[in-house]
């Protein structure tokens, strides 16, 4: 399949919480092929910022030909994107990587912080079957949208809403159970979820992050350690951009 890089029109920009923004982009060819868990590379309009900013797909609308991205302002690139206005263009490549495999009848979707957005499209893909466990520091975002497509359990670090503590505290306190786990969020959270999955003997898919240069598997910048020798690399490394970003938790070292 030919790969796509295009100048996508900005349809809307939204502010969801302090430092958290959403972008709705017109990108019909990307929307047509994309699946939950895949990501796009966003390119800066600034000629001196060369590398792509990988951002997960938070929403895919095939009928309207749009994609939605939700991201945290983490540095100069994401700041630039947060200032884009409707009608302006941004260069996007995608869809990239492999999405979440849809498994099980009672999936539990676990998102922590800026790992929450990709879980929304996954919850939609499960058509109401999923339970979503969302972990925030304090201020919540996207939560009401999850409520339309899944059962929602919330944890906040400061205890301002839901369970005080982590997503795993919420799972225990609310006795959330399921037959498969999906997780995206900070590394300590992924480690804890993996440990929990092993203990409960549940399949578990995690979405990983690493610095990227090509975004398509050519440069070997974005590898993660694997438990077994990988067929492509012939060493215990896999490319997050091409072989991931979603991996079975037991296949990777976290």
């Amino acid at each position: 399949m030919p790969k796509r890089i295009l100048d996508a029109g900005v349809i809307a920009r939204e502010k969801l919480a302090e430092g958290i923004f959403g972008l709705l982009l017109e990108a019909e060819p990307i929307a047509a092929e994309a699946a939950a868990g895949q990501f796009v590379s966003l390119y800066s309009a600034q000629a001196d910022r060369l590398l792509p900013r990988p951002i997960s797909l938070c929403g895919i609308d095939r009928e309207r030909g749009t994609i939605r991205l939700v991201y945290r302002v983490a540095g100069a690139g994401t700041k630039e994107f947060s200032e884009l206005l409707p009608g302006e263009k941004v260069r996007v490549m995608g869809p990239l990587g492999n999405g979440f495999p849809l498994k099980g009848s009672r999936p539990v979707l676990i998102g922590g912080g800026i790992g929450i957005p990709p879980m929304l499209e996954l919850a939609k893909a499960f058509g109401g079957r999923a339970a979503a466990v969302l972990g925030y520091r304090s201020e919540r975002f996207l939560e009401t949208e999850f409520e339309c497509v899944s059962r929602v359990y919330t944890a906040t670090e400061d205890g301002s809403f839901g369970t005080r503590g982590t997503v795993l505290d919420a799972i225990r306190q609310e006795k959330v159970s399921g037959d498969v786990l999906y997780a995206c969020g900070p590394l300590p959270m992924l480690r804890a979820v993996k440990e929990y999955a092993i203990r409960e003997n549940l399949p578990c898919y995690v979405s990983m992050e690493e610095r990227m240069a090509c975004g398509i598997g050519a440069c070997l910048a974005c590898v993660c350690r694997t438990t077994e020798t990988d067929a492509h690399s012939n060493v215990r490394n896999r490319r997050i951009c091409k072989d991931g970003p979603v991996f079975e938790a037991r296949e990777v070292e976290l």
Binding site: A47, D48, R49, L50, L51, E210, R211, M212, A213, C219, L220, A221, C222, V223, C224, S233, N234, V235, R236, N237
Partner: peptide, 24 residues
């Protein structure tokens, strides 16, 4: 086969980048 270096292997710099893939 060579495993290469640990990550992060790259960083962006002004109008450029740095890499230490380590010949994986």
């Amino acid at each position: 086969p060579w495993e290469g270096n640990p990550t992060p292997r790259i960083a962006e710099t002004h109008s450029g980048m740095m890499n230490a893939i380590g010949l994986q």
